[in-house]
Design a protein around this nucleic acid. Structure first.
Lengths: 145, 145
DNA sequence: GATATTTAAGACTTAACAGGCTTTAATTAT
DNA sequence: ATAATTAAAGCCTGTTAAGTCTTAAATATC
């Protein structure tokens, strides 16, 4: 809906790294197992994240990946942008009209604009440290009977 | 974003029919030209809309398609549903977690729930008569110097 | 009834996404 | 040095969305 499956996996993996918060690198196989992500596929996604400097990779024994900077400095939109590519220069009309603007709006323009902005804000506002914390809370709830 | 390209074309075509508001059927080729939709592709989409009783098709000379009922009784979500298929039984978690609910929510759950509901409401609320009217207004604005 | 016109239907092509498999390169431990 | 381990990189496969092409069926006009 908001991003590709690859971006979804990327978010999960980054959250996992923020959760464990380990100074040592974490193996991709371990992340894949924890979130049930196809390992080879995640490996390729990780490469992209390394290239975009969201992850740092260490090869060889005791290798793995870790966050390239503190979790509270990494935001969802950065991850999505890195994996799915940059958002379109010009906003696309929601019903696909060639021309659609504030002054000559399509029927859904104003209503959609608000929603689109809400989505943008959500992805811009949420950082990995926050997300990891709330995932841990979720685990706590789920482990209670 | 909200629906497939096919559904987008379907919406455009249905709006066109609501705009012209003709008791006579309108040829698919004419609709395709008006909204710059690949004709054969639109023909196939139209078949789907006929099967879902949103359109009525008349074959042969002077044939074409027309709305199966008054424009103000056709809503966007019905079109999207017809073309893209029914929405999933269970809402998918926005970051792809296996289990995610109000009581054990993923980090984005509450925030996303509101947005998702806004989208649903938009598609449920807008009917073709309304949309056609606003498209006509748009045209008027665009034809002014 | 023959013909032209229009949708219906199905096979086919193309591109992108999701995922798998194998080899290479880097690094650590022995 | 050598072997083991781990990410990097490349190529291959399956699936789906998007779009094209061809033939069949229905219908109005002549």
């Amino acid at each position: 809906m908001l991003y590709s499956k690859s971006a979804e996996y990327a978010i999960q993996a980054m959250i996992y790294l923020a959760e464990t918060n380990s100074p040592e690198p974490v193996m991709i196989s371990q992340i894949a197992k924890a979130y049930n992500i196809p390992q080879q596929f995640l490996a390729k996604i990780a490469q992209t994240l390394v290239k975009h400097r969201l992850l740092v990779a260490i090869r060889g024994r005791n290798g793995g990946v870790k966050l390239a900077r503190p979790a509270n400095e990494i935001y969802l939109n950065q991850i999505v942008y890195a994996v799915d590519g940059p958002p379109p220069e010009q906003e696309q009309c929601v019903i696909g009209l060639d021309y659609c603007s504030d002054t000559a709006p399509c029927p859904l323009h104003h209503r959609w604009k608000i929603i689109r902005e809400d989505i943008r804000e959500m992805l811009v506002a949420e950082d990995l440290a926050d997300l990891a914390l709330r995932v841990l809370e979720k685990r706590k709830i789920m482990n209670e009977p």
